[in-house]
Amino acid sequence: MPATLARAPAAPRDYAACSGCNLCVLVCPMWRSHRDPRFTPEGLAKALQHGATAAQLAAPVEACSLCGACDPVCPEGIDLPGLVMDLRQKLANSLSPRSSPLLDDLCASLQQGVASGVASRSAPLLLPGPDLRADAALLARVQALLGLAIADDDGDDIALALELGVEIPQHRLQQFLASLRGHSIVAADGLLLRQLRRWLPGSQRMGLGAALSSRPAVRSNLLATDLYVIEARAYHGDYERMVAYYDRLQLETGCALNLDLQRIAIPAGAQGLSQKLGATPGDGDAQAKWILKGRRPARIVVESMADRAAFERVCDLPVVHLAELGEDPEMIKRRPHAFG
């Protein structure tokens, strides 16, 4: 497994430090679909420098998928995903309350909290997220590969609140963090993982993709003809370590990665807030199509369930989750075309 002890992040700077270098534009999926500088992190920062309000910036703030690609490329060290999350929170506070079943459930969950049992103090925990939970067989395989217990409180509501800009009640946040203190953490949700880096400095944590791909049973089944799709949020949230980790993975296995020339992960399945809430249609999986442009892999291996869904929509290549690799007969039976 890659080293998991992360450095405490340097204090991020705010939008005032933006010098307009455009580097975030090059990697931004919003930019790729809109070709409009207002739909870029730089556009947001510059507009704020000139007095724009959160309400004036609602369209780009809601279109952002929080993939975090802008974060590692910013030479000024501005916390650009944090900027978008702040603006979302301001938007949520300034607008009349939006009503949707998703939001209603979330607010109830945040108030109620989650009862958690007493796990042994140092046992590593898995935060699988709702997508993985929904696939019981795959979740069992992940657990078997990693040998981890599933956290009673896996913070799904907190991850969703981060995404939607909903304020997290202090008692709920403290309850969640208390359940994680002292444990090594493997999280499927890259946005939650990114925040845990801030909330639990010094803790041991890693993304599900990196944890799985470091297992010999999985790694040895990656082929040079595979396109390996890194989950963008976890990768960008810990870029310096992850870029080195996946570089080694690529050297060892020969598989292609969904990295651009700047070694930024092109997100395939991430959606903007407005798409997530069903307010606007998606952009037709343009990112997944861009990843595949000019590439002819024999198989696509994904770390996240959202990416799997995106590729299954845009191509007829076999798409497998990382946990499905390995010598597990059940998995081979589930997706025989992916294993030849």
């Binding site: 307009g20 270098c21 500088p37 207002r38 730089e42 507009a47 007095g51 004036q56």
Partner: peptide
């Protein structure tokens, strides 16, 4: 044509600054 701070602010200066 777009007007206002949100639209114009991004163009206030160039790389020279």
């Amino acid at each position: 044509l777009a007007e206002g701070a949100a639209a114009c602010g991004v163009y206030a200066t160039d790389a020279g600054g």
